[in-house]
Design a protein around this nucleic acid. Sequence first.
DNA 1: CCTCCATATATGCATTTGCCTATACTACGC
DNA 2: GCGTAGTATAGGCAAATGCATATATGGAGG
Lengths: 187, 187
Amino acid sequence: MLRYALLGFLNYHSLNGYDLKNVMEDSARNFWHADLSQIYKNLKTLQEQGMITSTLEMKEDRPDRRVYTITEAGRREFAEWLATPLTEITPIKEVLLLKIFFSAQAERISVLTQLRLQRELHRRNLQRYAEQTVSDIEKNIQRLGASLDDALFWDATRRAGVLYEEMYIQWLDETIARLETLSEGGT
Amino acid sequence: MLRYALLGFLNYHSLNGYDLKNVMEDSARNFWHADLSQIYKNLKTLQEQGMITSTLEMKEDRPDRRVYTITEAGRREFAEWLATPLTEITPIKEVLLLKIFFSAQAERISVLTQLRLQRELHRRNLQRYAEQTVSDIEKNIQRLGASLDDALFWDATRRAGVLYEEMYIQWLDETIARLETLSEGGT
DNA sequence: CCTCCATATATGCATTTGCCTATACTACGC
DNA sequence: GCGTAGTATAGGCAAATGCATATATGGAGG
């Protein structure tokens, strides 16, 4: 999957591995993330497959950088992926829910503490998505040389992040409230 | 992570690999899933580490089954995991959002088709969570010999599934509407 | 009769992922 | 002067994951 993310970004603009990581962190972190080493490995594979080419830029004051450019074959593969419909839902793996599922066996107070901590983390996340304004998106559009059309879709993914965090916080609030009511009489 | 899911279920009741898979599918599929081969591998490892033991039950009409039972060490490790707070949020990898992010480069109609297909899939998912009633949870409680306390937490995870799907459908509705408005004049 | 499905376990293999480490230079703060 | 952070690439290794396949039996449906 990561290969398509990389091809997608390179389809806008030639970039090196380090910058790809930063661009991804800035714009896609609420639905995708990848380790730097993972990105370098994928770039190597993509080049071996002829999807991208690279040139080494010599720098005097900074480390040399290997800049990757998408090829025609790369554009084709990417376009094909974009056009192929997803016939399934991305399955969720949510560690907190796994823990909660078994939490009848845990100390009630410990569960509450953990839920409150998660609520705090999700609140911060929500705030970040909410603050990621239109101007931020415009900044990324300039950086990548993307079109104004892209802003619409980028904002849609930002909106998905906001809705997700709001939903998550609502669920945490509900669940914490339920546990607090029960705890008044018990352990 | 899967090891804790397995320990968690075995903490209620001794089970074989095949049944563990079914129990997980029935009760945890909206926040965790695992391949059968993955479950068998993990059971093997857990036994090597002394977290579980197994006995082979000979069946005449059916294949023999290896039934796993949690050990004291297993219970300790599981309890420790339950008590250790998660200091981070589970990162999301959502393929649809990755595609949507780059979808300014795709045919507008193709994007709409894909979003509508996903909406249909999520609607079905929501319906399943909504229909997974209290009686279903009670059935699982009996099957595993869990306590009534568990019902509270199991229902909380079910509720999380409902909220997630409602949120997702809302986002899809929003996004589809936005694209439809734009498409009236364009490609 | 034959195929598919359910029950049941297990191995093999490739891919993906995560985390750690090495290398190398600059700049900034203490 | 020294540690830390930023820029930049890359290899190593273990763990997790996914998918296919092998084996074996019984029952249901066409």
